[in-house]
Structures are given as structure tokens and as C-alpha cells.
């Protein structure tokens, strides 16, 4: 992977069924963020609040797995527009915490959340066509689209994200990551 000299690397990020913790972790690189903005430009990312892709991207960082049809749509868009797609964090890689619902039928989930919940005034299952449809279970990203790399952790350490971005920009493989930054908790 190489880009012509002088051009910044274009990075897209998103949080699907995640908690934005992985995004927070990237912000945790502290003052290195000044170096970061020198080498990358964000497109389609909550960091600069761009909602749609306006150009083809070099790297896509995906946080969270797929829990609904909109997650699947966004993930497929990421695959389409990003040269390198990376699953970031436990949820993107395995489904994570949201996957605790796996194994429970969707009907029961709705019943529990919107009907049996004691704090509800009216029991009503939301049914607006604007709302995305819930999937039968949480899918990790690589089961839906091809994923080129995985950065584990909950969240992945800031140092890991920083090192991974630098490796990718240098055209190296993620296999070179130093183990001291890989932590699974």
C-alpha cells in the first residue's frame, strides 16, 4: 500500500454496535494527536462529523459489530470505500458485550425491553419504518465483509492504535505490532 508523497492518508471511522470507547481510546494518544493530523485526514468519521463518504479512503477503522440492518449497510459502505478495513476492539472482532443477547429470540428481546420493563408507562414495540431492523444475533464484522486486520482490546490501547496506524502508513503489516501494546482486556 502506498500513496504519493505529500498526500495525507484518508481515514474513515465508525462505531456500529459499540460504545464509542474505541474512538475515545484513539483520542487517548494525547499530544500525538498533533502528529496524527499532520499525516491523516478524516473522512466519514465522528471525529470531524462527516456523515457520508465524500472520497475513497485508505484506511477504515470499524468499532462494534452488526446488530441491525443499518450497521450492515454502513459496514458494507466501509468495505466499498476503504482500501484497508480494520476491526477495532472486542465488539467488532467477536460481537463483544452486545452479543450477550445472542441465543435469545428477537421476539423475547422486544417483549422484555418494550413490554415487560417495569419503568415503562406504555408497552409498545417500536415499529416505524425509519428504524433499522434488528438482526437475529450480533455478527462480528468479518462474518459480514472481508476484514484485513484486527486490533484487540476493550478498548484497544491508545498506543496500539497509534502503532497500528503508523505501521499501515509505512506500508507494513499489522503482524509487526509489538506485543507489549496488545492487551485483551
Amino acid at each position: 500500500m502506498s500513496t504519493e508523497m505529500g498526500r495525507k492518508w484518508i481515514v474513515a471511522t465508525t462505531s456500529l454496535a459499540g460504545c464509542f470507547g474505541c474512538h475515545m481510546s484513539l483520542l487517548d494518544i494525547d499530544e500525538k494527536i498533533f502528529e496524527l493530523v499532520k499525516i491523516v485526514e478524516f473522512n466519514k468519521s465522528p471525529f470531524d462529523d462527516t456523515k457520508e463518504f465524500s472520497m475513497e479512503c485508505d484506511i477504515g477503522l470499524v468499532e462494534g459489530g452488526c446488530c441491525n440492518s443499518d450497521n450492515v449497510r454502513v459496514l458494507r459502505l466501509f468495505r466499498k470505500h476503504c482500501k484497508i478495513l480494520i476491526s477495532v476492539g472486542q465488539c467488532a472482532i467477536t460481537g463483544g458485550l452486545p452479543a450477550m443477547r445472542n441465543g435469545i429470540p428477537v421476539k423475547e428481546l422486544f417483549q422484555e425491553s418494550y413490554c415487560n420493563n417495569l419503568t415503562l408507562a406504555n408497552s409498545l414495540i417500536p415499529n416505524d419504518e425509519e428504524l433499522p431492523l434488528l438482526l437475529d444475533r450480533i455478527y462480528p464484522c468479518h462474518e459480514v465483509v472481508q476484514v484485513d486486520g484486527f486490533l484487540p482490546g476493550c478498548p484497544p490501547r491508545a498506543d496500539l492504535l497509534w502503532e497500528a496506524l503508523n505501521l499501515l502508513i509505512a506500508g507494513k503489516s499489522l503482524g509487526k505490532i509489538s506485543m507489549k501494546n496488545v492487551k485483551y482486556d
Binding site: S69, V72, P105, V106, K107, L133, L134, L135, D136, R137, Y139, E143, V144
Partner: peptide, 9 residues
């Protein structure tokens, strides 16, 4: 992954 069957319920 099949979106149609995944959102069936």
C-alpha cells in the same frame, strides 16, 4: 451472512 434471513424476526 444473509441480511434477509437475519432480519426475518
Amino acid at each position: 451472512f444473509n441480511l434477509e434471513s437475519a432480519v426475518e424476526d
